[in-house]
């Protein structure tokens, strides 16, 4: 029973990672691709980490491993948005624009030209 729950959690993580990967390949421009990649680093990582956490606690019974899994999840979740924000801003200021015109673009209105 416990193994089934662990497998389901890891499966959920894998499904969201797959969704993010499809998005990264098929989205039309840089910013939309970054949006899709966030799927991988949130529920993809969280699902796998939660499954691994249950495995470490109940099957391995090894508290040291469990604590390290929690630290991994916390660090991924706190450092990822900083990088995403920096890459998006950097790409925009380097002059990358989507081919299709954006719905609204207040950033260009206030900072460009």
């Amino acid at each position: 029973m416990l193994r089934v729950i662990i497998d389901i959690l890891i499966g959920i993580g894998a499904v969201f990672a797959l969704a993010g990967t499809i998005g990264v390949i098929k989205m039309p421009d840089v910013f939309s691709r970054m949006q899709a990649s966030t799927c991988i680093t949130t529920l993809g990582v969280l699902g796998v980490c939660l499954g691994a956490l249950l495995y470490a606690i109940f099957v391995m019974q090894h508290p040291s491993t469990a604590v390290k899994i929690v630290v991994i999840a916390a660090l991924v979740l706190t450092t990822n948005p900083v990088g995403a924000h920096a890459i998006a801003k950097g790409a925009y200021q380097a002059g990358i624009r989507p081919e299709k015109k954006m719905e609204t673009d207040d950033y260009r209105r206030d900072f460009d030209e």
Binding site: G20, I22, G23, T38, D106, Y107
Partner: peptide, 26 residues
């Protein structure tokens, strides 16, 4: 909030990434 947004995003990705309407708002 995270799970809701993730399910929404995964749906867009699995249905071919056509259903998007990107923009920058203030």
């Amino acid at each position: 909030e995270l799970v809701k947004a993730n399910v929404d995003m995964a749906k867009r990705c699995f249905t071919g990434c056509k259903n998007i309407n990107p923009g920058i708002v203030k």
